[in-house]
Design a protein around this nucleic acid. Structure first.
Lengths: 236, 236
DNA sequence: CCAAAAGTGTTGTGTCTACACCCATGG
DNA sequence: CCATGGGTGTAGACACAACACTTTTGG
């Protein structure tokens, strides 16, 4: 903005007091070989029975991502989680209470090490593929975040945030298949990841499985960070 | 947002009346083999002499992209231009007049067929690489949009919006080199684009050049749209 | 010994990179 | 005839896709 002095701005700003800003969090998890999203039952009358993303109004002295982290922490207790801003939705009538423009974030959490703070609210992990109708424009927001995640996950190693620290290659492949909604060739997948030389063989194995146990790995974030990013190519 | 009834929302919204939403447009052009951006001299006292993006407050009954198109049209007279939302910047003190959260868009225009509406304001095309200090957080916004454009241009044929309808392969290569800030091999570049079979040879040639004239092409958008998008690969 | 998933290589196909010379035009 | 950029092909390296059998464990 420019071409106005500050007083003109102040006048203009108070004219537009009917708007509010919110953040909405698409919290992704991975469980049972499926991509999940954490939703809550809406308790607006307009949307009774529908599921809603977790969100809140942005406070006056609060950064946008602070607001998103606050929402996330309030519901999951988690902090220091991977989070990325995706898109802002400003449909004039998207919120029945007035003009509420919302900034959408997605975050990636490990469901297993996660204690939900349910507060009596109905908070549930839903399989992303099965979510149909949602409150507000939240289905559009969810899809938009899922698309962004699909792109991100083939460009950077963010998917590991959805897995436990120790994981098998099978779990990793299932994760990619769930996010991208494709089937991948097992040998080629393993070859690709092992050849990147970023997985650390922990010399441990799965436990309590009714078949041959798989080796467990962890991702070497330090090594990845030190590498020069080569753009114009795919796969990290 | 959820877990509140509408009255609670209304109360909350009026509590936060000090916020305003703006849009800021990063208008890219291509001229003289350089990526350009359209900037205006800021006339806020805090930023005298600094350059600023084109932006404005979002009106109460206006969609975000409508606001962005309005700003664009007011300055360039152009409509029906490629435009994409990039990111929302909500730093608490990013605007001296108060809390102004801004949604950043970039758009791609053809400088040649473009008549600026200068209105006495100082409006100029700047070489992106040479822009240093700007008003507000506009340099960060510019960089963010440039990054997004870099990704976009290797995934989808948006770059053609910066060129005249008829262009030579050299111009196209210069465009990619300017946007990505890399040097590309001429023969490989030509091979790649010609093999996509999306450039239409117009059987015309450049004029008024002091050397052998190049063939002119146009991009076949119809053919591109009809093709199935194959993901997980680069280059359209 | 049976079921279930882990682990493992090769071959063909296509894509990317590197690289040097002749051609057409204007001046 | 000179300067300037236009136009062209090939060979090696690399990445990706397709594909089947043996191994290990628990029950």
């Amino acid at each position: 903005m420019q071409a106005k002095n500050i007083n003109a701005h102040l006048t203009e700003i108070s004219t537009y007091f009917k708007m509010a800003i919110s953040v909405d969090c698409v919290i992704f998890g991975f469980d049972n070989d499926e991509l999940k999203v954490l939703l809550i039952k809406s308790d607006l009358n307009e949307f009774t029975g529908k599921w809603s993303l977790l969100g809140d109004i942005v406070r006056p002295e609060e950064e946008l991502n602070e607001a998103a982290y606050r929402v996330l922490k309030a519901r999951t207790g988690l902090d220091h989680v991977y989070m990325e801003q995706v898109q802002t939705f400003g449909g004039v009538h998207r919120h029945p209470a007035g003009r509420v423009i919302t900034v959408a974030y997605y975050s990636l959490v490990n469901i297993e090490q996660n204690e939900l703070k349910k507060h009596g609210n109905e908070l549930h992990w839903h399989t992303v593929k099965d979510v149909t109708d949602m409150a507000f424009d939240h289905r559009e927001i969810l899809q938009s975040c899922h698309e962004r995640l699909k792109h991100k996950v083939i460009e950077q190693p963010v998917g590991f945030n959805l897995l436990p620290k120790k994981f098998s290659l099978r779990e990793l492949q299932n994760l990619y298949e769930a996010i991208l909604d494709v089937k991948l060739d097992r040998r080629n997948f393993r070859k690709k990841f092992l050849s990147m030389d970023l997985l650390v063989d922990l010399h441990e194995e799965e436990d309590d499985v009714p078949h041959r146990p798989a080796r467990l790995y962890k991702f070497n974030f330090e090594k990845y960070d030190q590498r020069k990013k080569r753009y114009l190519g795919i796969g990290f």
